[in-house]
């Protein structure tokens, strides 16, 4: 069995983090989930900097990225990723509270891989997370490592 890759979750709200992890666990998606509180931390993780200086090398299977975060928001993170030679192939899924037309346009313009609005209903949320997890972390062939 090959090694399951990490799912990186950038989300400033702890409840959302918990519920997302619960949802992934509920569906037996066994990949490691690393949660970061904002865009700055997300970039540090991806670039193996700061607190993540010593983490195991390699990009996560997918980055689940909230838009509204302190310091550096999701769109800024996405922009940085796509500009970075090492990261630009990383699958990024926006996981956000509302469907705002301008956000949607911006994200797709920056080359986001998916854009998912978190459903208010928890069952729907479970379902959504399940689909994201299964698709991006398990089914999707990873881009070749660089």
């Amino acid at each position: 069995m090959y090694e399951l890759k990490t799912i990186l979750l950038a989300e400033d709200n702890p409840q959302d983090v918990e519920l997302t992890i619960e949802a992934l666990a509920e569906h037996n998606i066994a990949n490691d989930v690393v949660a970061v509180k904002d865009g700055v931390e997300a970039m540090e993780y991806l670039n193996c900097e700061g607190q993540f200086k010593n983490r195991k090398k390699g990009n996560p299977a997918v980055l689940l990225l909230d838009i509204k975060m302190p310091r550096m928001d999701g769109i800024e993170v996405l922009e940085a990723i796509r500009k970075n030679e090492n990261l630009k192939t990383l699958p990024v899924v926006m996981l956000t509270s509302s469907r705002e037309e301008p956000d949607l346009i911006k994200c797709y313009a920056l080359g986001v891989n998916a854009y998912v609005v978190k459903p208010v209903d928890f069952k729907d949320f479970l379902n959504a997370v399940k689909h994201i997890g299964i698709f991006w972390a398990m089914l999707n062939e990873q881009p070749p490592s660089t």
Binding site: L19, E22, I67, S97, E100, F122, F125
Partner: peptide, 18 residues
């Protein structure tokens, strides 16, 4: 409002369902 009001709501739902 759209962003921030929905979040707590989702959380309430989430935990009640759990």
């Amino acid at each position: 409002v759209s962003h921030d009001l929905r979040a707590p709501l989702r959380h309430i739902n989430g935990y009640v369902d759990l």
